[in-house]
């Protein structure tokens, strides 16, 4: 079979949010690393297992060869966690509407372009990733260390995520009814005092300083009336309208859809 020459366009538009979205989605672009949170601290925040403990399994390692023959198995290289038979575990991020570096829908698009062995779900203010346990830990660390995460405006919240559309507090932190993370005024940084489901941690986990407002606005993926309005980007509007029209028409009478 001839190899198709195809280069993914990823996202339309030439405005700043459009370019940033494209950057996040482009797996050939290495994202900026802003901090280095130790893996044990990430594991503590996730709260699925005690750092250093063994991974619980749900099936025998694939190397034992108990699986039936299957052409898909022969085709797809299993993830590390799948090879070992890990449980499925999750991490969930909440992004504030007040200039968080990324938004849930773009997270979904980015994850699908960058990671495999992933099941992700989009909601209005949060985005969940389900993966094999050791793989989700690696991805969580990469995301927390990277530029999609701002310590004050992105939250790691497994439940009771409310706060993404609420005004920030006096310290510029996103509201959290369970107060999983807090502002440490002495150190000038944010620290987690509870894991993602609100279980208190033995000692606070520092995740670093919030990014400055200027940086957030330069790295934004949000189209906002008080920033770059989506209507300013003709190509994005055209693409969105096309998708909207097609999904409406295709649900109604697909045989009638005619496009160039």
């Amino acid at each position: 079979m001839a190899k198709t020459k195809y280069k993914a366009q990823l996202y339309p538009g030439n405005t700043l949010p459009a370019k940033n979205r494209r950057r996040f989605m482009d797996s050939s672009v290495k994202l900026e690393k802003l901090r280095d949170i130790p893996m044990d601290d990430v594991v503590k925040i996730l709260g699925h297992r005690v750092p250093g403990s063994d991974y619980a399994t749900i099936h025998a390692p694939l190397a034992e060869g108990n699986e039936p023959d299957c052409p898909i198995r022969a085709l797809v290289e299993p993830m590390e966690g799948a090879k070992k038979g890990d449980r499925i575990r999750y991490v969930q991020f909440t992004d504030s509407v007040y200039w968080a570096p990324i938004v849930p829908y773009v997270r979904a698009q980015m994850y699908m372009c960058r990671y495999r062995g992933i099941d992700t779900g989009t909601l209005s203010g949060r985005q969940i990733i389900e993966m094999r346990e050791r793989d989700v830990e690696k991805v969580a660390k990469e995301l927390i260390d990277g530029e999609t995460f701002d310590t004050a405006r992105t939250g790691i919240r497994g439940a009771t995520v409310h706060g993404h559309a609420v005004r920030l507090d006096e310290n510029g932190m996103m509201f959290d009814a369970w107060q999983r993370f807090r502002w440490n005024a002495k150190k000038g940084e944010v620290e987690y005092v509870k894991d993602q489901v609100g279980v208190p941690l033995d000692k606070p986990v520092a995740v670093g300083k919030p990014m400055p407002e200027k940086w957030l606005k330069e790295h934004t993926t949000m189209f906002r009336a008080d920033g770059v309005d989506m209507r300013e980007d003709e190509e994005v509007m055209r693409q969105n309208l096309r998708i909207h029209t097609l999904r409406t028409k295709c649900g109604f009478k697909p045989f009638d859809v005619k496009e160039d």
Partner: peptide, 21 residues
Amino acid sequence: GEGLPAVIKAGPGTGGPVNHP
């Protein structure tokens, strides 16, 4: 304003104190 619960009402931490300052 935004409600600040005294106890956690969902998930594995249910029943635990929130201790919101």
